[in-house]
Design a binder for these strands. Structure first.
Lengths: 377, 377
DNA sequence: GTTGATTTGTTTATTTTCTGAACTTATTGT
DNA sequence: ACAATAAGTTCAGAAAATAAACAAATCAAC
């Protein structure tokens, strides 16, 4: 395996983006001499490579970055059926793809993974001896070692040591993670938040998920529940939620809730875009629903900003557009409910993602473990 | 100064409490041999010492802990006038005390500190050559280097490089910090949360402050504003707040707000205890006020738990008791507004603190910088 | 009691890793 | 062309960590 200095170097690069040897040495508290050797070793291992040359006064500096083809990872999403299984390079590019049937039996899933793995790797021969891990995203709570699924309603699991089951069947290092947290990790490693140390990702879909990066690390919370904003009380004494409380964000602002409210109002809308279209035609019910949902999501995001002062909020969404009424109301509510001094200080970015989010997120969990080791929280 | 391994050892001990050499070696990823030497050096420096002996099978292990008299720190609170100035040992015990006039002119305060410092140290001669820093707590925003006050309404400051001003006048390493964050650090270093890695401290007083520890480190937020729960919207369209918004927690649940509401209801109550007494006699207005305040604080704490899943919430309060109506309602509201699965999973502790909180917190900032170095966020 | 098992902590020779200082390389500015 | 500047390399020596053997302090069992 890698030495601790080598890991530290990869960690710094994955947290800050491409850097020169001199800058790396300074930020790691090492001498240029030490840096030189560590970089040489990692380059000859094929994990690092030289990219851009920066010209200034004096000898130009050469930026070092992770080599896209230096390591490969498998990502599997257990949120969909059939479950997608992808092979990702070090940049988050998907270089091969398969699907497999989803089951509720851990052993059966592990068996399927072991069966599909050679077929996946056959699509990309050079990845075989550079496969460093498998990551699996699922809906539910995962322990801090990313090994055991503490609870998953969707899969009907409770305290299932799924990572070691898969590891045993495949012989490859395996890690599992909650869906929203996996997406956050992939944004940090591969996406638009590489050089942001503190941010929260809100994944907007049928349900609402959220995960925090703090100090450059995924923060999982004491019970793995950090970021569970879906069930914060946003409308005191509001509608009952399937969790047992009332007025949870999930009952007002998730796609599921929005569609249900639309149905209850007799609107034939099957997507956010449909509802936005109705609203722009002046349909009062559609406008009311979008206002209510946008306000709720905006207030929750305002709380996120007030409580944690992140450097960025990134909203990922598979469906819909965020430049309509819903998005506008959401942004206004977010701005209106933070300290006026802070209003506008925290960028709220929305990003449409393709259907590979979960599988790519899963792969990023394996990459994260390779790069950074187990998360400290 | 200390080597990085020495600092790491102090960091681990200050985060986890007393540990044996063998456990330390394992948790730092070093060999027992290396540990032996590092511990020897720190003991002869007077910073560490052996405490309890733990008997089990085999040779007993000897716990190592910070030596209470191994280092001293000065703490100054600029929240009060006159400003208390204390000398603290490594356990947070206050071993000497002075006061000084507070001013709004940074130069004048620095001058006063330089003037009082010899008098403070005269009370405790052995501290003179073991003084490793000055910490200053103030109300406002402080940058991540704990050097500049970005903004303080109370002191009327904006971008004041106060730490370096004091450093220049006294010749001692100086750090400044926000009041609530300083209290959180002192609880982590000296108090009841030493071995908790993730927790939030809510300081309940005239205003409401809050600070988070995440992964064993103070989390300051991207603009130094993490934990500003006082101005989260807790009663949508509620009373106007001096911050410009409406329905902030501060307008309902701070001691200032509670007293104002009591006054508006014509109650002659000057403290929480007075109001609790009225409520227990059946005074409807008193009951209403306490319910409203307790509910608001409880909801905010529930959000804190939902968003960040901390291992503990610690509420520090100078005034009043938390076992009356206010505390009960607060706890009930907190429990009722978290995911039922989590209810009761996060301990909410209340702790009455003496008038030295702020000064002790300030001293802990200096200690934290000595032990752990600058906070990474 | 004595002996063996067990685990902590120390010692010492050896290996690994890092540093300092001089040096080479590649560029800008004049 | 040549000085100035800064990045990156080389290599001897210093510093730090390791492995393995060992000493120390206890419990448990006979």
């Amino acid at each position: 395996m890698l030495t601790s200095s080598q890991q530290q170097l990869l960690r710094v690069i994955s947290q800050s983006g491409p850097l020169s040897r001199t800058v790396l040495a300074a930020s790691m508290g090492l001498s240029k001499a030490a840096m030189s050797g560590i970089a040489r070793d990692l380059i000859s291992l094929g994990v690092l490579h030289e990219t851009e040359t920066i010209y200034g006064q004096g000898r130009p500096s050469i930026l070092l970055d992770l080599h896209p083809e230096g390591a490969f990872f498998v990502g599997i999403s257990l949120l969909e059926d059939p479950a997608p299984m992808v092979l990702s390079d070090f940049n988050g590019n998907i270089v091969a793809r398969q699907t497999m049937p989803r089951s509720r039996d851990p052993e059966v899933i592990a068996e399927s993974i072991a069966e599909m793995l050679p077929r996946l790797l056959a699509e990309r021969e050079d990845a075989l001896h550079k496969l460093y891990g498998i990551g699996i995203a699922l809906s539910g709570f995962v322990d801090e070692k990313q090994a055991n699924c503490v609870q998953s309603t969707l899969l009907g699991w409770k305290d299932v040591p799924f990572a070691s089951i898969v590891r045993q069947k495949t012989g490859v290092d395996t890690f599992i993670e909650n869906d929203a947290k996996a997406v956050a990790v992939s944004e940090k490693l591969f996406g638009s938040t590489r050089d942001v140390q503190n941010f929260s990702v809100v994944s907007f879909d049928e349900g609402i998920g959220c995960a925090h990066f703090i100090g450059g690390n995924l923060y999982r919370g004491n019970h793995g529940g950090a970021g569970e904003i879906a069930h914060c009380t946003i409308e005191p004494n509001g509608s009952p939620c399937r969790c047992g409380k009332r007025g949870c964000l999930d009952t007002v602002a998730s796609m599921k809730a929005i569609k249900e409210m639309a149905k209850a109002e007799g609107l034939a809308c099957n997507s956010l875009d449909d509802l936005e279209a109705e609203a722009s035609l002046g349909n009062a019910a559609a406008i009311r629903i979008l206002h209510r949902a946008g306000n709720a999501l905006g207030l929750a995001i305002a709380h996120l900003i007030q409580f944690n002062d992140p450097g960025m909020i990134l909203i990922t969404h598979v469906e819909g557009r965020f430049d309509g009424l819903f998005g506008t109301v959401m942004r206004q509510a977010a701005e209106a409910n933070v300290l006026p001094r802070y209003a506008g200080q925290t960028p709220i970015r929305t990003q449409r993602v393709d259907g590979d989010v979960w599988a790519r997120g899963a792969a990023s969990i394996a990459a994260h473990n390779f790069l950074i080791g187990p998360t400290p929280n």
